[in-house]
């Protein structure tokens, strides 16, 4: 992407949050985005992950410009090509872990039997084989985040976006989550995450720092954990 701008309008107040971001992320990269609070990290990630749209600049995804996709096409990209992990997990409270993981497949029109099979597989891969039928409020924060990773994985996207995935977790759970991401990256997934913690960023291979809507530093991490 190059020259990306984003301005929020709240009443008469305008916040020029992204002021010309240019960055290229290749297949199978493992990137940490860092920077002070309010610098525009989440805004940038939401645009990269098709949850929001930029005002100016060019964004190529898979070598194709994303401008001009309509809502139904965007829904399909969110569904199949990218996966999102949020700081707040955002699991649906009335559904079991298994049903939460099945949800993206529901919108992908996958047959019920296959949904069940793949959701179980995804939960096993994040180490939750014995918690499948628990509701979110019966799970710890770390377990909930692992459910949400399974949900992001289940439609086999190439890219996973994670906005402070360990922000609400203790160090131990945070490390568990990071180990999952590292394994996924080894298996070929592109992973882009936001974090405030250097120990977390240490798991990644590339570190981008944003200040006031601009990239101020972009370097390879030679000492990946």
């Amino acid at each position: 992407m190059s020259g990306i701008h984003k301005t929020y309008h709240t009443g008469s107040v305008q916040a020029h949050v992204l002021r010309g971001i240019s960055v290229e992320i290749k297949k199978n990269e493992y990137v940490a985005i860092m920077g002070p609070s309010g610098s525009g990290k989440s805004t940038l990630m939401n645009i990269m992950g098709f949850l929001d749209v930029h005002d100016a600049g060019e964004y190529l995804f898979d070598n194709r410009p994303v401008e001009g996709y309509d809502e139904e096409e965007l829904a399909e990209i969110r569904n199949k090509r990218v996966g999102f992990v949020f700081q707040m997990f955002y699991l649906l409270p009335k559904m079991s872990a298994l049903d939460n993981v099945k949800l993206p497949m529901l919108y992908a029109n996958i047959p019920e039997k296959e949904q069940e099979e793949r959701a179980k597989q995804a939960l096993i891969s994040v180490g939750l084989e014995d918690r499948m039928h628990h509701k979110p409020n019966e799970l710890s924060g770390g377990q909930q985040q692992r459910v949400s990773i399974a949900r992001a994985l289940v439609n086999e996207p190439k890219v996973i976006f994670a906005d402070e995935p360990t922000g609400n977790l203790d160090t131990h759970s945070g490390n568990e989550v990071m180990e999952i991401f590292t394994r996924l990256n080894r298996e070929g997934k592109t992973i882009i995450m936001i974090t405030h913690e250097d120990e977390i960023a240490a798991y990644t291979k590339r570190k981008i720092i944003i200040r006031d809507g601009l990239i101020t530093s972009d370097e390879i991490n030679h000492s990946q954990k």
Partner: peptide, 16 residues
Amino acid sequence: TQEIGLKKAIGASPFA
């Protein structure tokens, strides 16, 4: 609203 947001974020179309 939040449930709708989540569903859209994981790929629910406006139609769904």
